[in-house]
Design a binder for these strands. Sequence first.
DNA 1: ATAGTTTTTGAAATCGCTTTCTTGAAAATT
DNA 2: AATTTTCAAGAAAGCGATTTCAAAAACTAT
Lengths: 355, 355
Amino acid sequence: MQSKRGSENKAITIYDIAREAGVSPATVSRVLTNRARVSSGKRDRVVEVIEKYNFKPNTFAKGLAETKSKKIGVLMADVRNPYYASMFVACETAARSEGYSVILYNFLGDVELEEELLERLLDERVDAIILLGGHADELVSNMEYVEAVNDVMATTPVVITGKLDGTQCNTVRINAMRSMELVMEHLFSLRHEKIAIVGGRMDVLSTYEKVLKYKQCLKERGLEVNPDLIGNGGKYDFSSGYEQMNGIFQKGGEPTAVIAINDFAAWGVIRSIHEHGLAIPGDITLVSYDDTYMAETAEPKLTSVNYNYEEYGKALVSTAIRLIEKDDSVPRVRMVEPSLVVRESSAMCRDREKR
Amino acid sequence: MQSKRGSENKAITIYDIAREAGVSPATVSRVLTNRARVSSGKRDRVVEVIEKYNFKPNTFAKGLAETKSKKIGVLMADVRNPYYASMFVACETAARSEGYSVILYNFLGDVELEEELLERLLDERVDAIILLGGHADELVSNMEYVEAVNDVMATTPVVITGKLDGTQCNTVRINAMRSMELVMEHLFSLRHEKIAIVGGRMDVLSTYEKVLKYKQCLKERGLEVNPDLIGNGGKYDFSSGYEQMNGIFQKGGEPTAVIAINDFAAWGVIRSIHEHGLAIPGDITLVSYDDTYMAETAEPKLTSVNYNYEEYGKALVSTAIRLIEKDDSVPRVRMVEPSLVVRESSAMCRDREKR
DNA sequence: ATAGTTTTTGAAATCGCTTTCTTGAAAATT
DNA sequence: AATTTTCAAGAAAGCGATTTCAAAAACTAT
């Protein structure tokens, strides 16, 4: 015979526990939720019976009664991207330690799906929604999406990682300007002056800010901005890095250092540089963003900007939870500070040394 | 003022719809579930009102009444591993198209957490559980875990990707033997004979089977098995590949081809080979498993065994759903057939050419 | 037109928990 | 010792769907 599924296996409820412990269901509920005092005698009795049967309160009933699911929805483009995977794991871990669980939806770059899944998360009755990237990270907010998010916010708090004009979303962001500052300081300290920047879309807030800061840093140092060294216009993957870097070589740009918008793009850059017969960091220094395992796995190991995913996830989740609990001390915008992890891919500028 | 949260925003229910449409709640339920006939007049009226308010039935109430959550739990080691990420996305997509959603838990290599999360999934009242890897993939099943899974199976169907002796779990597996056969055939056709195998743990079923087949193929071709060319004993990450490959070089093994247990390990192998001043595929051919984006991104691009994640995910999810629906035509073991994607990292054996 | 069927429909019970309201007992106050 | 205050614990009313059961309505057949 199969296992004892169904039939006699009638799920055990709070009433069963109550009967066996000789108390009322209300009392059982009280020890379960720990929201009211129960005399230690009865409490012990109840706990004992609960353990005896390994009783777990029914989530549906609980959710129905409390109108809370203890779930946070996370909507992102694609967990297969290690950056997002890291963010998810960080959120999951943070959420679990607060008694929440996480529902993950990937829209896989499909704009329509993104909106549909937002709706779906609402169906799931999540208590809050975290929007990682996607529309909520674009420089010019998509009107339709803003409307959808506003609808959502009528019932469910939303936390984003970028910005979404026309909404009152709370935000936990990486300090993108600062992250570029770190990179530029590092490169300047290595005497680099011909610095290229590769990958990413200018209509994404964080990228926009990085490029802004990049130009600003150059100017501050009295260096001119060479448009031939700016290869934004792709995406965040391998081929963007590869193609944009090829483009820079083609235009005759001769950078001594390259900033890749993320580790993915950096890999593309590596390939392009190698195909042009140059070495890293011998001929060209490479620095990237995100510091996923890809940075450590690349050859050479990449100097990369680290976001401290654990902290980022915690900040995101704790903001969400405070919003759920109507804690009005929540700051509307929180920043996560980046740090630079220096590895093998960056070195002193050769051109300068030769002088 | 903030958005209209709370207060007057009293969630709209099936009763509200019923009142406005001039029917009973039962009728609304009937059009919602589509499980009983409703006269087209009333149906239209109800649908109209539902759309007017964009009404979504409360999941908790529905779950409570139906004792079904329409959720599938997925337990895995770590989505940050691209292989698992691909599996998850495949499952998510397959599940969505069947009206299910997926809850993902990562135990991050923590054995105790693995068991705890299994319990937690049960709390979530998922309708079925998919165990990707972990204990349910080990050669010698962990007794304690088997017991835990058996407890789970009393209420919830479980689908695994490996094996778990002492349980009646349904299985959807990759044909590991066949996958090694593909690789060996490929290598033999390129005239390789000194073939190393690197990475992975022998106590993991799929790895065990691969190594078994590896030896078998060698013998069938009249070649001897050289233990110095077998570098299993690590894990599935970069450093395992790197260290095991270094070990092979140290022992004086001079393979003309290397099989890496996954793309991750392959990356380590690449580094080791390069550090030894050798070229791929010039001096050594490299073939790996999983065919994640890492295979396509590596330098050189890796020949890798592809599992067709989409199909795999579909098989996993459809098995789970049929189990949920007590469809007893479900085969206990299903196989997913692998295929070999040949890229830049494999080439004709030089040693042989020289002759 | 009438009796017999088949469909539609609504009332009410149910799913399992939380919570308000009430009561009775215990503790504190005078 | 009498009275007020505090507190533990039970009864019962939700929470918002589904579903059974029985009545009403709509057809069929005679």
